[in-house]
């Protein structure tokens, strides 16, 4: 109890220090950087009325974040829908994994900024292009972790499956899936993190309403305080998502 109180106090000190640095930077270094106070004044409306819709882009931060979250959820689900089965296949088959490992290693480090134009070419619309980008960027941790999960199934369980002559379906549901699930979830967590990183880039380039779209619009309108508002929102939402996934992951590990 004392310890968690102390940790909380320490993190408050850290936050205060960073805000102090920010204030100093805006006062002495860059006149264009809005001070913390100014940021708060100009963002108050968006934070205090988070669900207010005044125009296509001029909306409460809660609504904007919700648009982004829905888009991320779609792209993320799409990504793991392809990623998890792909990981299972690659983990189960030496042949496939040798065949596709180089491809994956090359595709994995490609930035969302590079995928998005290809998505636009392929789908001709910004929304599917954004989902394509999120899916293809975020699926790799799921693929790789699932693959490792399959490879890490203890030999004991494989022997039991052989001795009991389990059918492929029973091997899948009783042995493979339960042992792989914790690994998969680690992959899901990392994938969701990436999906949230990608959202900003894809919204910026497509100009769709959401935190990233709003951020880019406000930059073009020279309202710099809202850039900071968006940055903070992105961070807080990403942090919350990660905590939530970690919670589920822990439940799975102990179950």
């Amino acid at each position: 109890m004392m310890n968690s109180l102390r940790n909380f106090a320490l993190s408050l000190v850290g936050i205060t220090l960073v805000i102090g640095l920010w204030a100093m930077a805006s006062a002495f270094w860059s006149a264009d950087l809005p001070s913390p106070m100014k940021t708060w004044e100009e963002s108050k409306l968006y934070i205090m009325q988070p669900l207010e819709k005044r125009g296509e882009m001029d909306q409460g931060i809660g609504l904007l974040a919700a648009y982004s979250l829905v888009r991320v959820a779609k792209g993320f689900l799409l990504g793991i829908l392809f990623g998890a089965p792909l990981g299972l296949l690659l983990g189960a088959s030496q042949l496939l994994s040798k065949m596709f490992d180089p491809v994956i290693q090359v595709l994995r480090p490609i930035s969302p900024l590079a995928w998005l134009p290809l998505g636009l070419v392929l789908f001709r619309q910004s929304e599917p292009a954004a989902l394509f980008t999120i899916a293809i960027c975020s699926m790799w941790p799921t693929v790789i972790n699932t693959m490792h999960g399959v490879r890490a199934i203890p030999q004991d369980y494989i022997n039991v499956a052989k001795v009991l002559r389990l059918s492929p379906w029973k091997r899948f549901t009783k042995v493979l899936l339960p042992s792989t699930l914790p690994y998969m979830f680690t992959g899901f967590r990392l994938s969701l993190g990436i999906a949230w990183l990608v959202i900003v880039a894809s919204e910026m380039l497509t100009g769709t309403p959401g935190v990233g779209g709003f951020l880019w619009q406000e930059y073009n309108s020279l309202i710099y305080s809202h850039i900071l508002l968006c940055i903070l929102t992105i961070g807080v939402v990403g942090f919350t998502l990660d905590r939530m996934m970690a919670f589920v992951e822990n439940k799975l590990r102990t179950a």
Binding site: D156, N159, K174
Partner: peptide, 17 residues
């Protein structure tokens, strides 16, 4: 393997789920 031969391993090897 065949079902007419049942095996007990050194470790219990129970399916954890």
């Amino acid at each position: 393997p065949g079902l007419e031969r049942a095996m007990v391993f050194q470790s219990p090897s129970l399916l954890p789920s």
